[in-house]
Amino acid sequence: MGEPLNIGIIGCGAIVAQYLKTLPHLPSVTLRAVADLDLARAEAVAAEQEGVRALTVDELLADPEVDTVLNLTIPAAHAEIALRAIAAGKNVYGEKPLAMTTDEARTVLDAAEKAGVRVGCAPDTVLGTGIQTARHAIDTGMIGRPISASATMVTPGHERWHPNPDFYYVPGGGPLLDMGPYYVSALVTLLGPVSSVIGAASHTRAERTIGSGPREGETVPVTIDTHVTGVLVHESGALSTLIMSFDAVQTRSSNIEIHGELASLTVPDPNYFEGEVSICALGNREVGWDAVPSSAGYIDAGRGYGLADMALASPGEEHRANGTLAFHVLDVMESLLRSAEQGASVPVRSTAARPRPVPLTSLTELLEDATS
Rank of each mutant, 00 (worst) to 15 (best):
P27D: 09
T223E: 15
Y182V: 07
N322Y: 04
L70R: 03
Q250G: 12
T364Q: 15
E365K: 04
E59Q: 15
S294N: 15
L265F: 05
V332Y: 02
L336H: 03
P355C: 02
V126G: 02
V220I: 15
V197G: 01
E365F: 09
Y298G: 02
E318L: 11
A353I: 04
S294P: 12
A35T: 08
D36S: 05
V57G: 09
G141V: 01
T266M: 08
L239Y: 10
T241E: 14
G120E: 00
L239E: 15
H259Q: 14
T68C: 07
A115P: 09
L190S: 01
T364K: 12
T209V: 14
G128H: 09
P27K: 04
G237T: 04
T351I: 06
Q132S: 00
V332R: 00
A54R: 02
S345T: 14
S236L: 10
A44G: 09
H78T: 07
E3H: 14
P293D: 14
D225M: 10
G283A: 11
G141I: 08
V52K: 00
G213H: 14
R118C: 06
E318H: 11
G306L: 00
G211N: 13
L307V: 08
A112Q: 07
T22F: 06
P75M: 09
G230Q: 13
H328C: 04
Y93K: 01
